[in-house]
Structure formats: structure tokens, C-alpha cells
Simulated assay, not measured.
Amino acid sequence: MARIDASLTELELKREEQLASLRDARGDLVAIAYQESVARILAEIREARRRLREGKHGVCVACHGMVSEERMEALPWATQCADCARRHSSWLR
């Protein structure tokens, strides 16, 4: 747990720095979209740290099954298993 929290903390700090370094994006749709993406990922990382403290990290929020180790390694802030994430993304289309 400590290793995962340290990794998430490092990712959170990097995203905070990244967000702070972005210039004012008024009128630049690409820059605005990028800022929103970084802010979304930062929020997801913070959520993952909260879930870790609560003992819920690695448990899918949709089906309550386990998120695979491979997915957690690739996306440490993942809150859904791959199947639920696919269903959710196809639903958004």
C-alpha cells in the first residue's frame, strides 16, 4: 500500500506542476482541452488516493470486482475494471 501511495503521490505532484505550468488558454480550444484533460487526470489520481486510504483501491466502482494488476500498473488511478471501462466508453459514444 505504501508503494502505491508513493507512486500516486508522485503522479499527483507531477500533474499539479503540469497544470500550473500551462499558459492561459482563453480562446485556444486545443490548450483548453489539454488543461481539462490534465485536471481530470489529477482529480482521478486524488480519487485513487482516497480509495486507497479507504481500502477500496483496485476494486471496480461499477461491478465491485477486482481491477486487474496489469490495468493498475498501466493506469494506477483506474477505478473500473477493463470490461466496465469499455462498456462505459462505448455508452458515451
Rank of each mutant, 00 (worst) to 15 (best):
R71G: 02
L8R: 10
R23G: 15
A62G: 10
M66Y: 05
Q35N: 03
I45G: 05
V38W: 10
L19R: 04
A62L: 07
A6Q: 14
M66H: 10
A85P: 00
S7H: 13
A74Q: 06
H88L: 02
E16N: 05
S7M: 15
K56W: 08
Q80A: 02
L75T: 05
R15F: 08
A85F: 01
M72K: 04
R71E: 00
W91M: 11
S37Y: 12
A20R: 06
S7C: 11
I45M: 08
A85W: 00
V30S: 13
I45Y: 03
S21P: 05
Y34Q: 14
L19Y: 07
A20K: 11
D83N: 05
E36P: 04
R86N: 00
V30Y: 12
Y34A: 12
Q35V: 08
R87D: 01
S21R: 15
H88D: 04
P76K: 07
S89R: 10
L92I: 02
I45Q: 06
T9D: 10
Q18Y: 12
A39P: 03
L29I: 10
Q80M: 13
R51D: 05
E69F: 09
A20L: 10
E54A: 12
Q80F: 07
E47T: 13
E16H: 07
R40H: 04
L11V: 10
V30L: 14
G58W: 04
A74M: 07
I45H: 10
M1R: 14
V67S: 02
H64L: 11
D83F: 02
E36G: 15
M66D: 12
S68G: 09
G58Y: 08
W77K: 00
L29D: 12
L52A: 04
R71S: 01
R53P: 06
E10T: 14
I4A: 08
V61F: 06
R3F: 09
I4M: 11
M1A: 15
L75A: 07
H64R: 13
L22M: 15
L11Q: 11
E12Q: 08
E16D: 11
L13V: 09
R40C: 03
